[in-house]
């Protein structure tokens, strides 16, 4: 079995790519997909620590994180549909109603 730092480094790289994607993209759907990828990077961290500690609790946490991610995806996409109805666009720079 290879060392845990490989898995943690991969998770860090994926998390960073997701964070930069959230910051630079304007399409709301792509921003949302980047958030999903950040969630997955954290799941990878949990699973690698769970495997290297020999403790199943981390994998149980990932299971619940997956179900919360499913619920979050459903609600988030519904919000994106509602934004599209109001603005006829998914460009998040045009959602500026509360911006000063």
């Amino acid at each position: 079995m290879i060392g845990i730092d490989w898995y943690l480094a991969l998770s860090a790289i994926l998390f960073t790519i997701g964070a930069i994607g959230v910051l630079i993209r304007r399409n709301a759907i792509v921003v949302f997909m980047c958030v999903e990828m950040m969630l997955n990077a954290v799941n990878l961290t949990l699973i690698s620590f769970s495997a290297f500690h020999g403790d199943i609790a981390g994998q149980i946490l990932v299971f619940f994180s997956l179900s919360v991610a499913a619920a979050e995806a459903v609600v988030g996409l519904a919000i994106i549909i509602a934004i599209f109805r109001n603005n006829l666009s998914v460009d998040i720079t045009k959602v500026n109603l509360l911006r000063w």
Partner: peptide, 11 residues
């Protein structure tokens, strides 16, 4: 994984 992540952000 990293290549597809970059491809997702930069597409």
């Amino acid at each position: 994984a990293i290549a597809s992540a970059l491809g997702m952000v930069l597409n």
